[in-house]
Amino acid sequence: MPSDIRQVDASDYRNAADLQSGAMLVVGSGQSGGQIAEDLVEAGRTVFLATSRTGRLSRRYRGHDILIWLVRSGFLDVPRKELIQPSGRIPARALLGAVHTISLQSLSAKGVILLGRFMDLEHVSHFSFADNLEENLRFADEASANVKRHIDEYIARTGTEAPAAEPDPAEIVAARLPNPPIRSLELTGSGITSIIWCTGFQGDFSWVRVSGVLDAMGQPLHEEGVAAIAGIYFAGLDFASTRKSGTILAIAEEAASLVEHIGASLTR
């Protein structure tokens, strides 16, 4: 990696003004990547976005913020065991804009240059990308459509009053894709001066030095926050018990569940 290329983790990003002039490469198109890419391009920066296989949510649907529907319909109550991938990894959170819908196509319409998944640093200043950009676009579109279908079925099943669905501008705008697709990028030649890594977050539990508590990846072995070793608990884990786990919506009920478990263990 050229020494003059600044590398920034998503957690350290604040705004475009903090970064030196030049083009930006954002790696990852989940919530952080999508929102940061939009922030940068709206600040007038040239932005390359390495996309990923990530779902998408509309910000609003049928008269409500999407989260209201996800809570009411039980979408967020899907248990952990139905969400864990065969590899044991938890799924990535869908791209959800803070105040409006963000899609890969809406980002491209604003000028963001879309790339496939980041693959490797070919040599000191060349990045390579997979030929899966259109696949990533389809996956996000299908994820959004599936969530809306779930909400529609809930509305019909319960007889809930709701306005008809309206097209979301961010989802119906045509994608502007590089032609031909960009499979390799020379950082300096492309004017890139900063890379923002938005490749996901994982807890650092290296401070836990109790045998049998962590798996081979250094993550807790647990059942709904209750560790495999008696007397150890983890609160606030992503997807700990349901899709809602790890969000502010789950704090109260999951904390109460852990307290109940602790109380029961003390009375045995």
Results as ranks from 00 to 15, higher is better:
Q35W: 07
A230P: 15
I155V: 15
L76K: 11
S144M: 04
K81W: 08
T51C: 15
P167E: 11
R117L: 05
F127T: 03
R53V: 07
V112L: 05
L107V: 00
S125W: 01
F129N: 14
S73N: 05
G28A: 12
G231L: 11
A228K: 13
W197D: 01
V112M: 10
G22D: 06
S21Q: 14
V210F: 04
I36P: 05
V208S: 06
A109M: 10
S190I: 00
K244S: 04
E82T: 10
L40P: 01
P181S: 08
E153P: 00
D152I: 08
P91I: 13
S29I: 11
D238Y: 12
R138T: 14
I172G: 04
A16T: 01
V226R: 15
A240I: 12
P2K: 01
I68K: 10
V26K: 07
L67Q: 12
G231Q: 13
S21L: 07
W197E: 06
S211M: 10
R157Y: 00
A23L: 06
D238N: 07
S3V: 03
G236R: 03
A170S: 15
L187A: 14
R138S: 04
R80H: 15
R6Q: 09
I192Q: 02
S190R: 01
F139Q: 12
S125Y: 05
T193F: 10
Q105H: 07
R80A: 12
G218W: 01
S103F: 03
S241R: 13
L57N: 12
R183P: 06
R72Q: 14
A252M: 15
S108Y: 06
I155T: 03
I68E: 06
V112T: 08
E254D: 05
F139K: 13
R53Y: 03
D39F: 09
V8K: 03
A230T: 01
T188D: 15
V259I: 11
V112F: 13
